[in-house]
Design a protein around this nucleic acid. Structure first.
Lengths: 194, 194
DNA sequence: GTGTTTACCGAACATTCGGTCAGTTGACAA
DNA sequence: TTGTCAACTGACCGAATGTTCGGTAAACAC
C-alpha cells in the first residue's frame, strides 16, 4: 500500500494542511511556530524534521492555490467559443478551485508581499488576473457586456466577489460550491432583480 | 486658529494615519514599531509619546471604519421606502464610506480576531452584516429579488464585492467612488449582459 | 532670563521569535 | 537480543519584538 502501517506521526503533507489551517485563523505573520506545534500536538523542533521552515510552508501552500488557478486558465474551454461563455466557465471553475483548495486559496488572497516568497506568489496571481481581465475585454468587444460598464471594473468586481467567497464558504454546511457559483453567475450576469 | 503654528512634530492623528498606511502595506502583525518609526521619521520611543501602543492604534483605526458604517445604517434613508431601494442606497453608501475612509475600512476587512481588540471589532462588524442581511431578506420578501436567488447568498456575494473594492480602489486615479458604485449596482442589480 | 512644556532620543527591559542540535524513544528487522 | 532508523524531545541560540525610562534640546510663557 502507498499509505502503510505508520500509526502515529506526521509527514510533510499533514504538517502543511494543519499549518495552513492555523495560518488562516491567525494570519501568517500572527502565527508562531509554537502555535503550529500546539496544533500538531508536537514540539516546535519536530516541525523541522518534516519541513524546512515557516516560509517554505507558506510557499508550498501558495503554489497549491496558484497551480489550481493556472490549470483552469490553461484548459481548452477557456480558449474556445464566445468570450462571454468562456468567462462564465472561468468564473464557475474559479469558484470550484476556491472550494476544492479552500485553505490554500484563502491564504493566497491574503498575501501582502512581505517576503520574496509572497512577492513571487503575487506575481503569479497578477498573471491570472491579467488572463481574466483579457477575457472580460474580449466579451465586451464582442458586444456581450453592457456598453455602459467598464470592463476593467467588471473584472475587479466580479472576481472580487469570487474571492470574497473564501471568507465564509464552508464545505460541510450551507450551500454547495455549485450552488454558490450558480448564484454568483445569475446575479452578476443577469442581475438580482425579480 | 485651531491648528496653530506648530512647525514640526507629530500628533496622535498624524501617527494614526501614517500607521494605518503601513498596517495596510505589511499587515498589522507584519508591522513592527520599528517599521512605524521609520515611516514617521522618528525613533520607536517617540511613538509612545503620542499613542499608548500598537494595539491602541489598531483599535482607533477600526473604530473609525465601524463608526462610518454604523452612521450609514442609522440613516433614515436606510429605513424608509421599498427594501430594494434601501438596499441600493446602502450599497452605494457603503462604497462611499469605504472610499472616504479607505485605509481604515481596508484594515477592518482584514481583521482575524487575534486579540480582544480585534474580536470587539469583528463583533461590531457582524452587527452591520446582520443589518444588511435583514435588508436583503426584506427585499426578497417584497418580491424585488429573483426567487431563485438565496437572500443569504446574495448578501454575502454583494457585500463581498463591495469589500473587494478596498483591494484596488485608489482615489487619485481611475474611476471615482461614484463610478465604482454605479458599476457595482448596475452589474449586481441588472446584470452585466449587453 | 527663568521655568515649563512639547517632542523627541538612546539605551535598556523582558519576552517571543524562527531555527539548531545532541540526544532519546519506540517500533520493527534480523 | 541486538541494531537500525524514523520521529521526536528539550535545551538552547541570536535576533527581533513591544514597551519603558532617564535624559534633553528647542520653543514658548512670563
Amino acid at each position: 500500500m502507498s499509505t502503510p502501517s505508520r500509526r502515529r506521526g506526521h509527514d510533510p503533507e499533514s504538517v502543511l494542511s494543519i499549518a495552513v489551517g492555523v495560518f488562516n485563523e491567525r494570519g501568517y505573520d500572527g502565527t508562531s511556530m509554537e502555535d503550529l506545534a500546539r496544533a500538531l500536538g508536537v514540539t516546535k523542533s519536530a516541525i523541522y524534521y518534516h519541513v524546512p521552515g515557516k516560509e517554505q510552508l507558506l510557499a508550498r501552500a501558495l503554489d497549491r492555490a496558484l497551480d489550481g488557478l493556472f490549470a483552469l486558465a490553461a484548459d481548452e474551454r477557456a480558449a474556445t467559443g464566445p468570450a462571454i461563455d468562456r468567462l462564465e466557465w472561468v468564473v464557475r471553475q474559479s469558484v470550484r478551485v476556491l472550494a476544492e483548495r479552500l485553505p490554500y486559496v484563502t491564504l493566497l488572497l491574503r498575501v501582502r508581499g512581505n517576503s520574496a516568497t509572497e512577492q513571487a506568489a503575487l506575481e503569479r496571481r497578477r498573471e491570472f488576473d491579467a488572463f481574466v481581465s483579457h477575457l472580460v475585454k474580449e466579451a465586451a468587444a464582442e458586444g456581450a457586456i453592457r456598453p455602459d460598464l467598464d470592463p476593467a471594473l467588471v473584472t475587479r468586481l466580479l472576481f472580487g466577489a469570487v474571492g470574497s467567497i473564501a471568507e465564509w464558504y464552508r464545505p460541510e454546511r450551507g450551500a454547495s460550491a455549485d450552488d454558490v457559483a450558480d448564484a454568483l453567475v445569475t446575479m452578476a450576469f443577469d442581475g438580482l432583480r425579480g
